[in-house]
Simulated assay, not measured.
Amino acid sequence: MDEDIVDAVLKDWRTAPIDERLRAALGYLEKLTLAPDSLVKADIIHLRECGLTDEAIYEASYVCLMFSTIVRLADAFEFEVPNAKGAAKDGRYLYTFGYKPLPG
Results as ranks from 00 to 15, higher is better:
D4T: 11
D4C: 01
V6K: 10
V6P: 00
A8L: 03
V9H: 01
V9N: 01
L10Y: 08
K11V: 03
D12Q: 06
R14S: 08
T15M: 01
A16M: 08
A16Q: 05
A16R: 06
P17W: 07
I18W: 03
E20P: 00
E20T: 12
R21Q: 15
L22G: 01
R23W: 06
A25M: 15
A25W: 03
L26Q: 06
L26S: 06
G27H: 11
Y28M: 13
Y28Q: 11
E30L: 12
L32M: 14
L32F: 13
L34S: 12
L34T: 10
P36C: 14
D37E: 15
D37P: 01
L39H: 09
K41M: 11
K41Y: 06
A42S: 15
A42G: 10
D43S: 12
I44D: 06
I45K: 12
H46K: 15
L47F: 14
R48D: 09
E49T: 11
E49G: 05
C50R: 15
G51P: 11
G51Y: 10
G51I: 09
T53W: 06
D54Y: 05
D54E: 15
I57M: 12
A60P: 05
L65S: 13
M66T: 07
M66A: 12
M66Q: 13
F67H: 07
S68E: 14
R72W: 00
L73A: 09
L73W: 12
L73I: 14
L73S: 05
A76S: 08
A76R: 10
F77N: 04
E78G: 02
F79H: 03
P82L: 06
N83E: 12
N83M: 01
A84C: 00
G86A: 08
G86N: 04
A87L: 11
Y93F: 14
L94E: 00
L94W: 01
Y95K: 14
T96I: 00
F97W: 02
Y99F: 15
L102K: 04
L102P: 00
L102G: 00
P103N: 05
P103M: 02
